[in-house]
Nucleic acid binder design. Structure first.
Lengths: 247, 247
DNA sequence: CCTTTGTGTTTCACACAATGAAACACAATT
DNA sequence: AATTGTGTTTCATTGTGTGAAACACAAAGG
């Protein structure tokens, strides 16, 4: 019954430390130590090594750690059929062709979300959605998906944040999140941008963790409440499919 | 004179192994062992660990190693001002506004290149450049930049490849690369796509390694040879600036 | 057929590299 | 001044990572 895996403990630990940074926020040394359950000095040594190699950097003002350039350098070389932003492109185009609206892909980054991929609607009136833009995490269908389906721990961290706009009622918002989790998708009408509406669904990776949010968006007069309800299953289906493409 | 850095050797080695994969191609174990100068068994153990944590995967047919999903997962969480595809966006927009053409950003991936970021020209007739597409590495201005400024070792690996189209004369091509290195930029006219032309310049990171290729592209009748020559310094300047933004 | 040469894998005794407790040095609290 | 929180350094101990060597398998080539 014994698993006989010959792994290098020090490396395992270092990688665990790296994976901490999927939480999205910058981390202090002690936080990391707590998370991975290692002694301060061990973490300190490992961070020094990781920093040395450029996998993490420390913010020079807050002195906290974040991912470094090397991670990007690696990800830029992600092999052919492995980069989600690319393997998902055909499915996103298929979705665009089926529904005729702009399709976007978002990941959370701290208190914001980033559009990491998008295919544009080819209708005359359409939402223009450039890749790489950063949007607030408190409005929009994708935002709500990214919060609703995050780990409960992360979710609390997000909502506990002080920068949260006071205009949003926490209790009401929580109820909304409940609904979203129950339905499996979120909608928004003119939340972030006047005249625009969107439907979004979560994409989970193999281990069941939230990987990204898939959304379609367009003019609110075309994306009515009823139409969005019709579209939702289609989007959720694509999202599910895209999840299975991972790994 | 002794540098007293307290780093974890095993971790350093593991990270070195990871960095091997910036070469772009899939790697076999022995290749990796050679590259990093470590014993087979050591590399084997490390690879097992890295694979276990999802940082690398092995191709089930060739049995060779490549980067795994975890790298993407991390890169998706690259902190705010660190993701090049994002920090470079404003400069790319500035360039688009100056020259009025579509601006693209490419990285090499094996025998192909990938457009990892783009801002569209807003002219009526324009090159449409979706992000994430994969293009061949043997035609186009960006391709030539990605080859010309690669490490000599990598360059040879690329050009030695059998899949290289026989229509391209190797000797002539090498001369062209020489010119490109001398000038600091490359051009192409209707190489990949009829009616399209492009100018491209290399972006180097702090350590002087090629990080990406920056290009502008548009209709060949607008981007004449003379116009491109005028544009070249502007593009090279942006590329240089973008390089300094790294890290 | 038996070599040879190339992979990747497993084993194992030994040495030293990674470890964690404890002590230290700061700040920012109180 | 005392306290609590950071991050950093030191150092004895031991248990972990190491590399040589042996092994397994496949492909190539005589």
């Amino acid at each position: 019954m014994e698993e006989q895996k010959s792994n290098v403990r020090a490396v395992e630990r270092a990688l665990d430390i790296l994976l901490c940074f999927t939480a999205g926020t910058d981390l202090a040394m002690t936080e990391i130590a707590d998370r991975v359950g290692l002694h301060k000095s061990t973490v300190h040594r490992m961070l020094a090594t990781l920093e040395d190699k450029g996998f993490i950097t420390r913010d020079r003002v807050t002195d906290r750690y974040r991912l470094g350039m090397r991670v990007w350098e690696l990800s830029a070389h992600l092999s052919n059929n492995d980069d989600p932003a690319i393997i998902w492109l055909p499915e996103m185009e298929r979705l665009r062709d089926m529904l005729g609206e702009t399709v976007s892909l978002y990941v959370r980054d701290g208190k914001e979300r980033i559009r990491i991929q998008a295919v544009q609607s080819n209708q005359a009136v359409r939402r223009v959605a450039p890749v790489g833009v950063r949007l607030p995490l408190y409005v929009g269908a994708s935002s709500k998906v990214l919060i609703a389906f995050a780990d409960s721990q992360e979710r609390e961290a997000i909502m506990a944040d002080a920068s949260w706009p006071s205009s949003i009622d926490a209790g009401l918002f929580r109820e909304q999140l409940e609904d979203i989790r129950r339905n499996g998708y979120a909608t928004s009408i003119e939340e972030r941008e006047p005249g625009a509406a969107a439907v979004a669904a979560p994409i989970f990776n193999r281990s069941g963790r939230l990987a990204a949010a898939l959304s379609i968006s367009g003019p609110a007069n075309r994306l009515t409440r009823e139409i969005m309800k019709e579209h939702a299953p289609v989007i959720m289906n694509s999202a599910r499919l895209m999840g299975t493409m991972l790994k």
